[in-house]
Amino acid sequence: MNTLFSTTEKSYFRESLTKEKISECLRSDGRDFKQLRTLESYPSFLNNCNGSTRLVSQDGTETIVSCKVQLMENDSKLNELELLNRLINIDLSIPDLDNSNKLLNQMEDSIKNNIVSQLQGTDKLKVTQKYSFQLFIDILVINCNSYPLGLISLAVYSTLNSTLFPVLISQDDDLLVEQVPQFHDYDLKLIKIPCPITFVVAIFGDDLLLVDPSEEELQTADNCLLINYIEDKKVIGPIRTIQFNDEYTKGFNPLVLSKAFELVESIGDEVLSAL
């Protein structure tokens, strides 16, 4: 991250993307404006985890996500949100950034909140009256060459969709009986945990929106949007803006927001089905 570009390089990239006609704009790698970079995916590549994914992006950024499941006894004092916050544990580490880094914590929170908000009101992680599944999602980003949140969210999505949970064989009502839940020795089942994916959209002027911007696009964009998308053509909150440069950053026309939503809605399902 934060590759150093020369002023002339930046203005060259900027000029390529700020032509009067959209048809004359060109992304430096020749992608279509709504096209994501090619990914290499290695699903379920770790044997000792309940679910795992390794995604390698075209620019060399590599994300490894693993998900482990543990049994946790519910604390009756907690309300639902507090309980969910305790059940979902995200640990994101990027070797270049230290643990107190603002960007890192923001990404971690955003992923966690996305999952927690989707789990609210469902009892997908509930095992019995007293016990729940606790998820430990570890994310490692190696060779990070651009803002990785988009890639991470894709990896987390595909991990959570392939995470296998142990099957309960004892009774699920244990309010009155003092009993530790028992699980089947080897049988595992898939619980689909809803997880939104995040699109990074870079804004250039009033018309041009770029999905999955590369590092040079991030450094020359007017502004960037983080838009969450969940299956069935739904854009969900929170929508955030994020900036990566001081030179070109400026405000944007609010009409761009609705355009961005339409764009994300139109490509969202294709991205999800490709994973």
Partner: peptide, 22 residues
């Protein structure tokens, strides 16, 4: 742009599973 541009291309490597551990 032609309408059939793929938005996201994903190349999956599934068979490697065993090899890596080996």
């Amino acid at each position: 742009m032609s309408s059939n541009t793929k938005i996201l291309t994903v190349i999956k490597h599934i068979d490697n599973n065993v090899n890596i551990t080996d």
